[in-house]
Amino acid sequence: MPEPEWLVHGLIQKRSTAVMFGKSNAFKSFLAIDIGLSVDTGQDWHDNEVSHGGVLFVATEGANGVGRLRIPGWYDHHRIEEENRRAFLYPKEIRLDVADDVTALIARMKQDFFALVVIDIFGGSMAGSEIEDKTARAWVHGIQRILRETGASILTVAHTGWQDETRARMHTHFWGSFDTRLRVEGDKEAMTATLTVERHKDADSSGSWGFRLVQSHGTLVPEIDASVTKSAAKPKKLSGENRAALNALDDAIAAHGVMQFGEDWPPCKVVHIDQWRKYVYLLSPGDTADTKRQGFYRAKKALHNGGHIAFYDDHVWKCAG
């Protein structure tokens, strides 16, 4: 196989799909604009070589602010002359699980050369639900049509899941379809963010950058800052309830644990969350159904936030250490 061709070296490959995911207020949109406009202007993205090409932004939330403030503010901050400002903002809503909308988008893209499409935000780019299999398959089919018929790369911005902050909030079929996964962690008070490559399907999956968000020309602009690093979660002391839930997970894995194979699964046994829940409920036979349910939810959230367990596709496992 040939070496990958990079649109942004080490970050996004040509003719590929990438998802950038993180919590709300992690500065994902500002980083996506920073990447997109680096491609649009052809200037290096923080010392990473860029292949120059047109960029189309599909802003499903806050399009007015993106077009009126954020994009012009980035250009002004970087002193880009008016004649070199060529990014486009798609003028209407998009439903990438609807064939007619995909056809209209492709027709617009064929009027100019676009090397990159930035979709922000994922949840607003479909008619159906982001957790439905039917929607997922239609959306992925639409994305593949865009790749095939235009040759552009696609960067999609998404929120993390409700229960699992280690992956985007979406059906597994969506999640498995992306060629690249980029994780963003932000600190709103410190005005910092990190961007980490979690996976490239066809290239070395490494790379992490720290940024400080600076106010400039009515927007926030990321500036590289080597002192900003990815935060390491510190394990918290377990309460009695959480310790019992973790012991129940040991029992559930011992009785029902299975090995799953694939790049998203760990090298250890996993168990379905419902099986774990049954074992937790056995520890509190006198409690009401509602009390058991609330206790399990508290323990699951605390153990995950503390780095003791991880989730994928409705399965759970214990983290090393």
Rank of each mutant, 00 (worst) to 15 (best):
K110C: 05
L69I: 09
T288S: 15
P222W: 09
S38Q: 03
G123C: 11
T194I: 09
H315N: 07
K134I: 13
W276S: 10
D120I: 11
L69P: 00
W74Y: 06
T166W: 07
L11H: 04
A299H: 08
L220E: 04
I146L: 09
G307T: 05
W139D: 04
G306A: 08
G53K: 02
Q163G: 09
N48D: 09
D100A: 12
H304I: 01
N242Q: 10
V102K: 05
Y281M: 03
W74S: 02
E189F: 04
R199M: 14
E82R: 11
E3A: 15
N64E: 15
Y75A: 07
I131D: 15
V66W: 08
E241D: 12
L238K: 06
V157I: 15
F178R: 08
S239Q: 03
E5Q: 14
A190N: 04
D274A: 14
G65C: 02
R68M: 13
E61V: 06
N247K: 10
P222S: 06
R183W: 15
I71T: 02
L220G: 00
D314K: 15
Q43H: 11
S177M: 06
H141C: 01
L89H: 01
K234S: 14
I33F: 05
S216D: 08
S205P: 10
L283D: 14
G62V: 11
G321W: 12
L56R: 03
R15M: 03
G22S: 07
H46Q: 13
Y312M: 06
S51P: 00
V271M: 07
A252C: 07
R199G: 04
R167H: 09
T156L: 11
E263T: 13
R169H: 10
V316E: 04
F114W: 02
V197H: 01
R212N: 07
Y281F: 13
R243H: 11
F113K: 12
E130S: 09
E82S: 12
M126D: 01
H9K: 15
D225V: 10
V157L: 05
K237S: 13
T288Q: 04
H52Y: 08
G295L: 10
C319Q: 15
H9W: 12
T60W: 02
S205K: 01
F261P: 00
D251Q: 13
H308R: 14
L282Q: 13
V197D: 03
R277G: 06
R86L: 13
V140S: 05
H171V: 07
G142M: 03
E3D: 15
A254R: 11
V98I: 15
A310S: 14
M20R: 00
F296R: 01
M191V: 02
E223L: 09
A32M: 01
T103A: 14
I33S: 07
E83M: 08
T135M: 03
I143V: 15
C268R: 11
V316I: 13
W317Q: 05
T288K: 06
V39M: 07
G65N: 12
W175P: 00
L37G: 04
A127S: 15
R181E: 14
D44G: 00
